[in-house]
């Protein structure tokens, strides 16, 4: 029952996160862009519960609005990459042979390539911005899922229950989705929870390089990167967005683990 509780707790966190993202404009005490240069780097006060940043903006409001960008970047990156990676990985692993080699070489080429250069190329050609950040992260991200799925399917291909399903006339799509997918789900779920956390952090790294969301749009990653120089004089600038990321990652982890346990029991 402890797991059940953890799963619900995780779901509650994620729901809260989505609600925050949707309701940011009504619950935030200030506008995230409202500056007050006189009131910079303030610590906690009644007016600003989490203090203010270098431009005198309310940190709490920026975190609430930042949830939008971070949820959007995290979710869309993971979903797109996961779908793409699953299709390509399973095709590659299931059929093997030349197609497998071709697809895996493509994956290798993309993975051997530092994502940073790809991101620069992207933003240089298309201009920086939220959609291009997501696009760049997906382009780098799907390969991981593809390799994981392919590796698992390679192992599953030799299992008796798969042979049995094939012998009963199950087509590839049927075998993969009905028989292999349940076994694939646990590692994929975990990989996705990491992937989502990774995407939120990667958006920050892109911001760190000046290629992320454009100011003054707040995102947790860009808040972390902007607050970094003030670690010694105003640690609250990084602590709170950092906590927001941590709570989100916690939620994702609990849900991932909980779902895994659930699937495990069903599978037996």
């Amino acid at each position: 029952m402890a797991n059940r509780f953890a799963l619900f707790f995780g779901l509650a966190i994620l729901l809260l996160l989505v609600a925050t993202a949707l309701l940011a404009s009504t619950i935030a005490p200030h506008s995230p862009a409202e500056q007050n240069l006189e009131q910079d780097l303030l610590s906690t006060s009644k007016e600003h519960p989490l203090g203010t940043d270098k431009l005198g903006r309310d940190v709490l409001s920026r975190i609430l609005y930042g949830a939008r960008v971070s949820v959007l970047v995290g979710l869309s990156t993971v979903i797109i990459s996961l779908l793409l990676g699953f299709v390509i990985g399973s095709v590659s692993g299931y059929f093997g042979g030349f197609l497998d080699q071709l697809l895996m070489r493509l994956v290798d080429v993309l993975m051997a390539f530092p994502g940073m250069l790809l991101a620069i190329a992207f933003t240089a050609v298309l201009g920086p911005g939220l959609h291009h950040v997501i696009l760049a992260l997906c382009l780098i991200g799907w390969t991981g899922y593809a390799r994981l799925v392919r590796g698992e399917i390679l192992a599953l291909r030799e299992k008796e229950f798969v042979h049995a399903a094939q012998a009963l006339g199950g087509g590839p799509a049927r075998v993969i989705t009905l028989h292999m997918l349940p076994n694939l789900l646990p590692p994929l779920l975990i990989q996705s929870t990491f992937g989502m956390a990774g995407a939120i952090i990667a958006e920050g790294s892109l911001s760190f390089l000046g290629l992320g969301v454009q100011p003054p749009t707040p995102s947790w990653g860009s808040m972390l990167s902007e607050g970094r120089q003030f670690l010694l004089v105003a640690p609250h600038l990084t602590t709170y967005p950092g906590l927001a990321v941590m709570i989100t990652v916690l939620g994702l982890n609990l849900v991932g683990d909980g779902l895994r346990d659930l699937l495990e029991k069903k599978g037996k």
């Binding site: 990491f194 790294s205 972390l224 990167s225 950092g242 941590m246 982890n253």
Partner: peptide
């Protein structure tokens, strides 16, 4: 499983996943 060491390891991986290099690095130095 579900012992305090399990929770501790969860906490550790949470930290590892939520802290980008550009934040963790200076923190460790400090």
């Amino acid at each position: 499983r579900h012992s305090w060491t399990d929770r501790l390891s969860l906490l550790f991986s949470l930290l590892g996943l939520s802290m980008p290099n550009f934040w963790l690095g200076p923190l460790l130095i400090i």
